[in-house]
Amino acid sequence: MAFSAAKGKLLSVIGDEDTCVGFLLGGVGEINKNRHPNFMVVDKNTAVSEIEDCFKRFIKRDDIDIILINQNIAELIRHVIDGHTQPIPAVLEIPSKDHPYDATKDSILRRAKGMFNPDDFLRST
């Protein structure tokens, strides 16, 4: 597919060490002119407030189009993620080494599932 001359936007990563090392190896990492990286390595000593701040910072950046976040980390800041309703940047919850993918925790699937409330399908006569 042909791409326009416009510069593409970034994918950012908030995840454990292996997730960050892996995706940066894949080529998503960037350090911009202001020395701001587009990734954050979360370990067991990282405070939840730090993750929250980083997530909010990524949302505000207009050069980021997709935020990848490990599902277990997303669980820690679920209220912030659920509060983000804008289409850009898209927040994608990805599995991690220690936490396999759980569809029941996925924000978008929970939203879609919420659409299927049986009461809504009844047509009152």
Binding site: A6, K7, L11, V21, L24, G27, G29, N32, R35, I66
Partner: peptide, 19 residues
């Protein structure tokens, strides 16, 4: 993560970008 570029390293551009 020690091998990953940090805030004090030089400017790096992403290879994989999204349009």
């Amino acid at each position: 993560s020690l091998q990953l570029p940090a805030e004090d390293s030089s400017e790096i551009e992403a290879i994989a970008v999204i349009h």
